[in-house]
Design a protein around this nucleic acid. Structure first.
Lengths: 136, 136
DNA sequence: ATATTTATCGATAATGATTCTCTGTTTTGA
DNA sequence: TCAAAACAGAGAATCATTATCGATAAATAT
């Protein structure tokens, strides 16, 4: 992560380093607020805006994945910053990675394999449609 | 939809009927704001809060599907109110249904089949994890 | 039909995550 | 050392969604 930052001529500040450390050290898919609380332990003067700015930067250089689970606040994954499926518990809101494919029976397989009672899922593909490709 | 409402002892009001009609008559996955604009054509006195309340109700009785695409506002599908994959254009924000399974090669198949240039996708499964199932 | 009960409505304030603005500070490179 | 650019911090602004609450209207019984 640090190398990626330097490669692209971004500065490595203490605040950024602190965010990087938390992202690298957690597989709990923390929210911006949660990262903020963690960073404040070592850098009490840090602003929440800085957290967001750092996350935006990391998103741009593809070193963090932003995850929207309809929870009114986003979560961030710095360990596996590429698109991959997640499994979210509606009760405790825990997010875990669920790397398996198929789909017709993924839901049932997933339920069997992980013990989760799956009640819903969300699949979104993002891209450029044929019409917009022409417009370029 | 109307029957479902009556079954569960909900009232059928003009405002609700207007929302139902728009949901039933559109496959464009409209936002609450968009539904609001449409409803106001026939019922100018309608409040945006009523749109949200109706959508919440329809979500509860599973007659509409709420779709979060990280666009800062949700979209609604009243035609196919069950979880299913969507394909979103990053440029024009158009949302279309993408009913195909598999996953390992869904992305490539989808690209070939629809002409979309897929740059990202999001998959979320919602459920109850083993620990929380025990807690019940 | 009319009255009664109660869900629903409309208007607006409140909430809360994220972004913006602006000012001061730090880093970089000549 | 110094100017230019990047960055941080504080708090205001934004904006979708929710909550509040008095007024209104739908369903049902009288």
């Amino acid at each position: 992560m640090i190398d990626k930052l330097k490669e692209q001529d971004y500065r490595l500040t203490p605040q950024r380093l602190a965010v990087l450390k938390i992202l690298a050290g957690s597989d709990a898919h923390p929210s911006a607020e949660h990262i903020y609380e963690q960073v404040k332990v070592d850098f009490p003067m840090t602003s929440l805006a800085t957290i967001y700015k750092t996350l935006t930067l990391l998103k741009e250089i593809k070193e963090v994945l932003e995850i929207s689970i309809g929870d009114d606040h986003n979560h961030y994954d710095g360990r596996r910053p590429y698109p991959h499926p997640h499994l979210i518990c509606n009760a405790c809101k825990k997010i875990i990675d669920a790397d398996m494919v198929d789909l017709s029976k993924v839901s049932q397989h997933l339920a069997k394999k992980t013990g989760y009672r799956i009640t819903n899922y969300q699949i979104n593909f993002f891209g450029i449609c044929p019409l917009c490709q022409k417009k370029v």
